[in-house]
Write a protein that binds this DNA or RNA. Structure first.
Lengths: 242, 242
DNA sequence: TAGTGGTCTAGACCACGAG
DNA sequence: TCGTGGTCTAGACCACTAA
């Protein structure tokens, strides 16, 4: 592979884009070790420092992971990353614990207008809609509605009769080759409906924190819409701003 | 200034810490241009690349700002930074607009236990407590309670009879030399009290989004506690996760 | 034109991990 | 011991800004 002698775009940016493309196309998969910096530099006809700068920027974006003495790897979704990167609910003592999940139902439907818009689908496209309840030490606290396009996720929850794992992003990566890389969350305060209040042992109209998340791949394609409604009496949503 | 020949801590980290210390001590102030990379390298007895790496990390943390052809500057709190970095409320169309503010009252009291704890003050320390209401195009939407330690902010809102500007962080920086650098926000859904519902033209018990923010300086000292309660019918809190 | 940051190189040596 | 990433150097040239 030769880098274009295009002086308007810095070499390290071109290399970064090349690496992102390799990952998006599946040429490099999560967990893979990539070639060493020196080897990549030789292949690309640039110095080690230039490759290094490209890699550094991707490490900062959580796309690659360096391990001194071992090599550089394509990041994958371990539980830690899910927990500390994507999960923002904390108990009132400031401890972050993952809740367990119970699937209430899992249906294949046509996308609503909102779902189609959020997932950038044609209106009427078929989707999978999962509803589950999440408990912290047996206390039901969060109601989740998860919408996925049926297309790449067709097998999901079918054979196993809705028996889905707690950490869905690991499943998407391992079973469908789709890695969630970023997310856009919108938060609002809403009132619990009759059904919601029953499921969460609250009075009708109790305030709930609604989190509407669109999860995106590395190349910014929306993959999952997840609407969570949380009882925030004993928990809160934490956001550190740096 | 000489850098210690301490091989356990990389030079560029030592230099970074040195720069942070200079800013924290007020030796470098917001808006100041610092010496050029080459000059700093000579003064510190290292190569330009090493100084450059230290500066790069501080630029990524919004502590310094580089301007090609001009120099490197200590970041200051312009309206853009406040808007895009610290203000996360967006209208339902996705537009970010700053609300205006009307101060309801401004009192000097003893810190409550919660205020003392959040601001790391001795219990009973005197504080300034400001209540204000914020409107989007004349629609009252957010109620804010702002708590500041009386100590460095003693003058605040006194002479001018509670006539405070909309953007308080600019005021803290310009009048008190305190730059807000990061913040820790905790979000919950709560019910509007009778008084709150009156001020926001809502029914009693309507769900409100509560944002409890502790604002921190560069050296992590808590400076301001701000509790906002927002009507999220026409707005939401946005959080992009990368 | 002079001075700044931005990119890129070639090479040295260190720290770490695995065999 | 070998190969990896991590730090650091010295110097070249480009792009931008201001005088």
């Amino acid at each position: 592979m030769l880098i274009v002698e295009n002086r308007s775009i810095p070499l390290y940016i071109q290399i970064k884009d090349l690496f992102v493309a390799k990952i998006s196309k599946g040429e490099w998969s999560p967990g893979d070790m990539i070639s060493s910096e020196i080897q990549l530099a030789q292949e690309l006809g640039v110095s080690q420092g230039t490759v290094r700068k490209a890699i550094t920027e991707l490490v900062e974006k959580n796309v690659l992971t360096r391990k001194q003495g071992r090599g550089t790897f394509v990041s994958n979704h371990d539980t830690n990353r899910a927990l500390f990167h994507f999960f923002h609910i904390t108990d009132n003592q400031g401890h972050k614990v993952l809740p367990d999940s119970t699937v209430l139902n899992c249906r294949r439907k046509k996308a609503t207008r909102k779902e189609a818009s959020k997932l950038q689908l044609e209106s009427g496209t078929r989707i999978i809609r999962i509803e589950r309840i999440r408990n912290f030490s047996a206390v039901p606290t969060i109601l989740e509605t998860i919408t996925l396009p049926e297309e790449p996720f067709s097998d999901l929850g079918k054979a196993s009769n809705c028996n889905l794992p707690n950490m869905l992003y690991e499943l998407y990566e391992q079973q469908f080759g789709i890695t969630i890389h970023s997310a856009d969350e919108q938060l609002r305060a809403v009132s619990a409906s009759e059904q919601e209040s029953k499921l969460l042992n609250l009075e009708v109209g109790s305030p709930l924190l609604e989190i509407e998340r669109v999860a995106l791949t590395l190349d910014k394609r929306p993959v999952e819409l997840r609407i969570s409604r949380c009882n925030t009496l004993n928990h809160y949503y934490e956001n550190m701003i740096f």
